[in-house]
Design a protein around this nucleic acid. Structure first.
Lengths: 331, 331
DNA sequence: CACATACCTGCAAACGTTTGCAAGTATCTC
DNA sequence: GAGATACTTGCAAACGTTTGCAGGTATGTG
């Protein structure tokens, strides 16, 4: 029923192999046959069957993109840019959501393996060992995860976290809490590492809260502990948790930023609209999506694993941070 | 290199066709050979090649999901639920973003056609004629578009819009603007139709503003016109535009809801966090995603086009609406 | 015991491409 | 004008599955 290469061959009076070459190695066919073939293909509305092509070339023209939670506002811009970049290179993208479950993540990679040329793991929750194992079976690129032997794009959230902490210290805060996300997330560990490093330098002790799920709900849970800790400021694992924190803090009678300063991470679209507008670490999400696709295609093409790309982050100061009660700004 | 059905056959000492049957028509093979085959498959870590399977069955096990703008917060929950539902049925999902460009939309469907069993068009911007044409080539399901002959899931935004307008009228507003989105979007026309219908009933004239792109930027543009129109309330095409409106209104010296009441549509995640929290029409987005996948798979399987499913919407009143200046609430 | 029936398995073609190989023709060089 | 060279094309195998057909063995029936 569908029009195949055979139909085009029949109509243009050449062998199928000539049609094939016209379409994928044009320089191997004479100008006039090429013209005839293209005319026929056009007239018939021929589109190559990518599955069939995949079978003989073992190149599918597809990529997999696996994220923990599409509904988390951190991901959509990344999905968007990755998908756009892929399409520009004539690739299609499978998108899958793991619901934050590592075992689903692994199963997804495995089930996609035969159907894609490579997979992008964004903020994977999988154990290093498993990722390394998978990357032996097909080209893999990780985003926000550092793993030797596996190319990756990192958003240097550590430097952003340090800026955030520096900002809070500058405002005069001394009792600062760190609301951590899943310990399987590289960003979470990275934020802890960077923040605690800087805190140590400055002779301040950070209260570590959590881990909690990287969701609004997780932020609410964290709020109780933060309140109990008596901290005057908190650095949340991401914007979603920060929103939950702000919300629940209000429920506990704490105003933000009056009683509690809150800093998020992601600078998701939402951060600028919420009330109070959220001070947050900006992540170069779109660039990461594009870069990851480029890296992946490079790995697919060349076979030699390119290295790790690191992207800058920065702090966006808005309204959710202020000096603690009874203290004027210090810097 | 990859393990194929042939390897499994060799190891288990049967013909490939027996392996194939074991995996896709288990009742046709004796229990003990089945056991042997499964053991071998398991030992080798065999995974069927879906592309090859597609070639002989002409069933790919893939679906396409095409949206106008993944970064628009309306879409992610839909993508998430659709993808989850598909995965439960052992389908993989291609996700593509059209950047609001109809011609990209068409091209995407065509380029996916051979690789999927059906496509979900979410809030398509394409002309009816083109959609109808495409649906003759492969199973199609539309979300938020009414089109005879093409199964679809509709979120009855009209009733939500009427509730919203009723709410505004109840507050005492008489000068109400309608900030419309792309006229190619069904929801946009539906909102206009419903709101203008109700307005006529109540003897009020709506100021139609736009169309503007359904983005924050579009909302900003609309704000100028709304301010010039002297309206005391505005119903925006979606939440994103509503945010832009609120923002730009502030820039023009209008406070929300004091000088201007704003209602959005979508009840996206953001609406509850922004300031002021947005009064908005709630869309059953997750249910729509699941329902659309079910409909599509039904169409793929049975071949008989199922009908149209309509889902309820409702109004969520928050803080962005209030009586107009100098008027107490009427109801 | 002969025959029909049910069950299980192998054979081989088909799905729509790509691609190495060989054969044919035209062009070039001396 | 002969041989070498460069182009262009067709042939057929291969990619990994599925599936209609036929053959074979066991089981059941009278």
């Amino acid at each position: 029923m569908a029009v195949t290469i055979r139909d085009v061959a029949r109509v243009s009076g050449v062998h199928v192999s000539t049609v094939s070459r016209t379409l994928s190695a044009a320089h191997l066919v004479s100008p006039d046959t090429r013209a005839r073939v293209l005319a026929a293909a056009d007239a018939l509305g021929y589109r190559p069957n990518r599955a069939a092509r995949a079978l003989s070339t073992s190149r599918t023209g597809n990529l997999g993109l696996i994220v923990a939670d599409i509904a988390n506002p951190f991901f959509p811009p990344l999905v968007k840019s990755a998908q756009a970049q892929a399409r520009e290179r004539d690739y299609h993208v499978f998108v899958a959501d793991t619901d934050e479950r590592p075992e689903v993540e692994e199963e997804l990679v495995r089930s996609m393996a035969k159907q894609v040329d490579g997979v992008l793991l964004v903020a994977p929750r999988l154990a290093n060992r498993v990722i390394a194992e998978l990357s032996r079976e097909l080209p893999l690129v990780v985003v926000n995860r550092r793993l030797r032997g596996v190319p990756g794009v990192l958003m240097d959230v550590g430097s952003g976290a340090r800026q955030a902490l520096d900002h809070l210290l500058g405002l005069g805060h001394r009792e600062i809490a760190l609301a951590t996300g899943p310990h399987t997330a590289w960003t979470s560990r990275e934020i802890e590492r960077a923040a605690e490093g800087l805190a140590a330098e400055r002779g301040v002790l950070l209260q570590r809260i959590g881990p909690n799920p990287p969701t609004e709900e997780g932020g609410r849970s964290a709020a109780e502990e933060v309140a109990a800790s008596g901290a005057s400021a908190v650095l949340a694992h991401n914007d979603l948790m920060a929103f939950g924190l702000v919300r629940q803090a209000a429920g506990l009678g704490l105003s933000v930023p009056g009683d509690l300063s809150v800093v998020g991470v992601d600078n998701s679209h939402v951060a600028q609209y919420c009330s109070p507008a959220l001070t947050t670490v900006e992540m170069p999400v779109s660039a990461a999506g594009r870069g990851a696709v480029d890296l992946l295609l490079q790995a697919v093409g060349a076979g030699d694993p390119p290295g790790t790309v690191s992207l800058e982050t920065g702090l966006v100061v808005r309204e959710s941070t202020a000096p603690p009660r009874g203290v004027g700004a210090v810097d």
